[in-house]
């Protein structure tokens, strides 16, 4: 099982590396989105308010993550899916996709963070906390979005469906992530965010477990 998962993750990475346009496209998407935000709020050398910074950052990450993960079941054509169906177990497939998408989402968040810091300034006072929050929300986002993209993939793969199915499910995670990130930016005592981090972990656990249990039913159809 573990070998299978590792092999599948390696396969995802190799495929991505061969078709660099998808990866580069999504990276450029993040940079452009940040830049558009920067120009739209028209900061003339000044800084934005912390809550605005926070909200804009997370909205950009949310949209980039939806776009990045949406392709995970679109990229592959019917024939190739049938091939995986024969050689790999559905559990291994969903876990490998979630792990791979977590990496991708994390990469996007980090890139977004760097570009944000460069153009809009970096108000974050508690860096380790902010990073921990990024990792946790990347796991949650990718678990939820991978599952939703496999559902949307069965229903003809349109982008609207992907968005309307995933947004309501992502909102609790997004709200928690925004609150934790706000605390980290203000450099509050870590005890303040502790219960929120635990809740975020719990939601990640629930979403991950349901994806793991439900994916085999989708895969069979």
């Amino acid at each position: 099982m573990l070998d299978e998962i590792i092999a599948l993750i390696r396969k995802e990475a190799t495929l991505e590396w061969r078709q660099k346009y998808a990866l580069n496209g999504i990276l450029l998407y993040v940079v452009s989105a940040v830049y558009i935000t920067y120009l739209s709020i028209g900061v003339k050398g000044g800084t934005v308010q912390v809550p605005t910074w926070n909200a804009l950052y997370w909205i950009i990450i949310l949209f980039s993550a939806v776009n990045a993960v949406a392709k995970s079941f679109i990229q592959e054509n019917q024939g190739r899916q049938l091939y995986y169906y024969m050689i790999a177990s559905p559990e291994a497939i969903i876990i490998s996709k979630i792990v791979y998408n977590t990496g991708l989402t994390l990469l996007l968040s980090l890139l977004g963070y760097i570009v944000f810091s460069v153009v809009l300034g970096n108000p974050v006072q508690d860096q380790p906390m902010f990073m921990l929050n990024l990792v946790l929300s990347a796991v949650g986002f990718s678990a939820c979005l991978t599952m939703v993209s496999s559902i949307a993939g069965k229903a003809g793969n349109n982008g609207t469906l992907m968005a309307i199915l995933s947004f309501p499910i992502l909102i609790p995670m997004l709200l928690l992530a925004i609150q934790i990130s706000k605390n980290a930016i203000d450099g509050l005592d870590r005890g303040v965010s502790l219960d929120k981090i635990v809740t975020l972990l719990a939601i990640n656990g629930i979403v991950g477990a349901t994806s793991y249990l439900l994916f085999p039913f989708l895969w069979k159809s």
Binding site: C144, M147, V148, I151, K154, A155, L165, P168, I169, I171, P172, L175, L176, T199, A202, I203, I206, V207, T210, S211, L214, F217, L218, S221
Partner: peptide, 20 residues
């Protein structure tokens, strides 16, 4: 597929209304 989504949404909805 809608059964799968409905279970998934329910699993996300319950923490939403009881915990948050």
């Amino acid at each position: 597929i809608s059964a799968v989504y409905s279970i998934f949404a329910y699993a996300a909805f319950i923490p939403l209304i009881f915990i948050l």
